[in-house]
Design a protein around this nucleic acid. Structure first.
Lengths: 223, 223
DNA sequence: CGGATCATTTTTGCATGCAAAATCGAACCC
DNA sequence: GGGTTCGATTTTGCATGCAAAAATGATCCG
């Protein structure tokens, strides 16, 4: 009985698929912040009954993407500038540690992957590509810590930040500046200069956070 | 109509209660690591149907307390020493940042609360009280950062560590040593010495983690 | 004409029902 | 006797049903 075929059975249940699809919908900004999430409508859309959809909503609430109001349904988590500031501040702490650890632990494969991500950002300077490539770059750095617990939390924070890109409307000036910061990050990384890498990563995060908060202050939060 | 009565409506739905009760069961170590979580049995016990219980399981899985195996039910998250090491390592990063932030932001009330927690640990040196009081102490420090995002993640990590106390069986020697570390932490805190506080907190976490890992290596992981 | 009140509709939360998968056990074969 | 295979039982996953709560909006009163 197929000894080798034991790999990636990874049977995925319905509610699990719904979690991913719904999270994608939320990250795509299709629903405005604070918008009501109508169970019935999404059931139609996904072609499932309410049970797995509700289970998925619970998970997404635990992840911070939706807010559950007893007897009043779920809404897309609203964007509160205070919260966003705290989000970036906390992420800064993790970025810093990613620097400390990645500088020491990154393997050749990790470095190759990171160089690849960085190169893609260089060859695709257009803001439209920025979001995805930038995320890949930072995910590659996080992966180089080889700490799954850190990676998972970092990934969640990254996604919660990603959600904001529709308020802030990626700024070309900031994108260019961000690339320069990445360059410096790569220099520190290649030299395996832990403290330098850590500080540059945290500073990069702080600058991004400040840009987001400024944009947030400018635009009345929709939703 | 009762203008003042708007406070703490906080209506809590059934599945939410189940999340808390079930998490308490898991933290109380009633079920062994890796043990099967029988839906039917828990439904009887909590007096609810399977729907809210299953919703609760999804949340607890997202929080890292249970593991969901498609078509095979839920189990108490097994204890993998590697994972535990990563958990402590990551928590160390947060402890460090708690030190940096709390030293600067703690209010008089925060400090009073912290002193209170510390005093309780002094007056209750018995290992049986240690776990709860120690957790309060560190929670108070986390709260002094005034960063809810950090606090929530920290709280989750703390609880995931708490789960391990049944493998490691709180060691009196370590409890005494831990108190000394707390003393040093308090000294740094009172002086608002950020770096010192941060380093002491991280070291304290590392020492605790090492003790847990040693105990873990000694006892074959039950469950 | 503005605002409150109440009936109607809609939506939410939970219980139950049913089909598919997994588990268990007994019979069976080598 | 050890191991396998097949059927019965249990358990899981999802759909549906039903009661309670909220949202809607029409009516009434000032």
């Amino acid at each position: 009985m197929d000894i080798a075929a034991t790999d990636t059975p990874e049977q995925t249940t319905l509610h699990e698929q719904i979690v991913e699809r719904l999270r994608a919908v939320l990250l795509d900004g299709e629903l405005g912040y604070g918008a009501k999430i109508p169970e019935a409508e999404l059931c139609l859309r996904f072609g499932v009954s309410r049970t797995p959809l509700r289970e998925a909503l619970k998970v997404l609430a635990a992840e911070g993407f939706v807010e559950l109001r007893p007897n009043r349904g779920a809404i897309v988590a609203p964007v509160d500038p205070d919260d966003v500031a705290h989000l970036f501040e906390f992420k800064g702490a993790i970025e810093h540690r990613i620097g400390l650890l990645a500088a020491v632990r990154a393997t050749a494969a990790d470095q190759a992957r990171l160089e690849e991500c960085h190169a893609l950002l260089r060859t695709h300077p257009e803001p439209s590509a920025y979001t995805a490539l930038n995320q890949d770059f930072h995910r590659a750095l996080a992966a180089a810590t080889h700490n799954p617990v850190l990676v998972q939390t970092y990934d969640n924070l990254q996604k919660r930040v990603l959600r904001l890109r529709f308020v802030v409307n990626v700024n070309p000036v900031r994108v260019a500046q961000s690339f320069d910061e990445h360059e410096a990050i790569m220099v520190a990384f290649r030299a395996r200069a832990r403290l330098d890498l850590a500080e540059r990563l945290e500073a990069h995060n702080r600058l991004t956070g400040e840009a987001v908060l400024r944009a947030l202050a400018g635009s009345a939060v929709p939703g």
